[in-house]
Design a protein around this nucleic acid. Structure first.
Lengths: 164, 164
DNA sequence: TATTGTTATACTCTATAACTATA
DNA sequence: TATAGTTATAGAGTATAACAATA
């Protein structure tokens, strides 16, 4: 169907001034279908919401999880290094770390070699908590598999490998 | 490499207190690699930034583009219908439409059949402008193709078709 | 009673700029 | 001078709640 045809049939359906109600799935998206960005955006919203729900009991959001994971795998990193690696603004990381430090999951240790910077470490509680978060994140990942299929999930990861 | 091995080699690299600077690409992501959500998030950021840059001269962002596209393909829709179809909060759509109406791209027409609701239409200028936006959006889409490859882009759209 | 559009509030996220203490 | 961390601000985006007009 051409764009013009879609518009014409849409006019027929919509009439003049929403004469009858229209279900969301009846509405044509026209040029939006075929845009990678739109599909990726909708998928990302779904993933985000499932992640937040699956890790809701432990009150951890995707960004917090990524910060804890990177510190756990690379103890001693500076805030700048973490911010750069995850593509987070350093100004924003300050608040993220304030919250994680208050929750006793992370410690800022003053660096002796460069007194401007902090070396980031997980606390023992942070290590234990992160292990639990990882189990829940794996559960979330299984939800993704159920949603799009095991093979499709693997294809997706291969296609997007350069962006990590 | 196991998670423990990754942590150990990371410690060797990082030392105690960021003794030397570490490039972002040296930092292990550990459990983050293999998370669909993380890959999708990074990809979505790339797409968003390229879209905003490519349509920078006309000052149109992805959400505005999606609203114009849906109204163009379905003239007469109510605000509720557009909000539902695109997964936008109706409260937020109010501000989006305020801006698009001020720019003379969209008109809110009072519905005669349901005096609570507005029928949304593109203005003639809106139609012309949208045609231009679509050309620019197609250019952006070619950037995506160049970035991940033509076949991968098509695979991606097929995998995520249910989310549109 | 329920729905449409609107207003308002709060919190997250992104993008800057400016400040301090160091290097 | 440049960099690391911090503070502050402004604009998007998300999530709610409440209200007036209308169904």
């Amino acid at each position: 169907m051409t764009a013009t045809a879609a518009r014409t049939s849409a006019r027929k359906r919509a009439g003049n001034g929403a004469a009858r109600s229209i279900d969301a799935d009846e509405i044509g998206l026209d040029a939006l279908v075929g845009h990678a960005g739109y599909a990726v955006r909708r998928f990302q919203i779904w993933i985000f919401q499932d992640f937040v729900k699956t890790l809701g009991n432990v009150d951890i959001r995707p960004t917090q999880y990524s910060v804890l994971t990177v510190i756990g795998a690379n103890p001693g990193l500076s805030q700048m290094a973490v911010a750069k690696r995850l593509g987070i603004e350093r100004a924003r990381l300050v608040h993220l770390l304030d919250s994680l430090e208050q929750r006793k999951l992370v410690r800022r240790v003053k660096s002796k070699t460069d007194r401007r910077s902090h070396a980031l470490h997980l606390t023992p509680q942070g290590e234990t908590a992160l292990a639990k978060f990882k189990r829940l994140a794996a559960e979330h990942e299984r939800h993704v598999e159920e949603k799009i299929g095991k093979e499709n999930r693997e294809r997706l990861l291969r296609i997007l490998a350069d962006f990590t």
